[in-house]
Design a protein around this nucleic acid. Structure first.
Lengths: 137, 137
DNA sequence: GCAAAAATTGCGACTAATTTGCAAAAATTG
DNA sequence: CAATTTTTGCAAATTAGTCGCAATTTTTGC
């Protein structure tokens, strides 16, 4: 099984892109956190220029490596299902915690079926559940 | 049953806010479209100042009247479940169409159960399914 | 309805976020 | 390794979002 690192390199190579230091750096940072804002990413990669970060995120999105989530006021970035285990998010509306929720076969199956009723071929999805976490009950 | 218009007015009044022309205007525009970016909203409400739009959206979010979705590159605004029937979104990755998908009891029930297993009290959720619409198959 | 009080808006200035052009640097090719 | 192609960093330019404040609109209590 290819490591997600090799997978990322293949995604770049196979589409004619180079494997560069900033790209590896950003990928590593993305792996290190469940979800993060662009601002956090910029802060965590001090050696990479802001413009490069924007450009790389855009490329990673096109290649299906990262996706954006709207959680609260600003969007957050995280690796897609191809790079981390598919999961959903529990967002505590009181303390702001973001908790990963493992995928559930029953739920996923229902999704596909539903989409199909609208003659829609689902390839991917994203679910956010808001509420109160155990600490904030 | 109160019209969603009356509901919006009550939400403002009961929290000590005024009912103003710009607020009614924005609400009406939000009702007229499934989801729209701030930019579209600004363009569709030429008589309302940009700053007022941002302030109103912020207020509407606090009052639970609108919510943001991250679809594609920029966030989109839409009325919350209290104002339009609860639903989810099918987003076509080819043509960009956003299709509303009616809620499904089985799905909703599963969500609550899942959240509960993480000792999380769900109050609200948002689901986006990406894929290809019937026209783009 | 009307005048006073309170809340909101529009405007202009301002700060933050994102994009772009381009020469220099790094990666890829053979 | 030299030539070619792709990226990067930097600075400048846009675009998005915020803020202070005087003018205007809403609301309140007759």
């Amino acid at each position: 099984m290819p490591s997600s690192n090799q997978q990322m390199k293949f995604a770049l190579k196979s589409t004619g892109h180079s494997i560069t230091v900033p790209r590896k750096q950003l990928f590593k940072t993305l792996q290190a956190h469940e979800a993060q804002t662009i601002h956090e990413l910029v802060a965590r990669c001090p050696t990479v220029d802001r413009a490069t970060i924007y450009r790389t995120i855009e490329l990673f999105e096109e290649l299906g490596i990262v996706q954006r989530l709207q959680i609260g006021w600003k969007y957050q970035l995280e690796l897609t299902d191809s790079y981390v285990h598919h999961h959903h998010h529990l967002v505590c509306t009181r303390c702001g915690a973001i908790i990963a929720l493992a995928e559930d076969a029953e739920l996923e199956a229902r999704l596909i079926t539903l989409a199909a009723t609208a003659d829609f071929t689902a390839s991917d999805h994203q679910l956010e559940i808001r509420g109160l976490c155990s600490n904030c009950h």
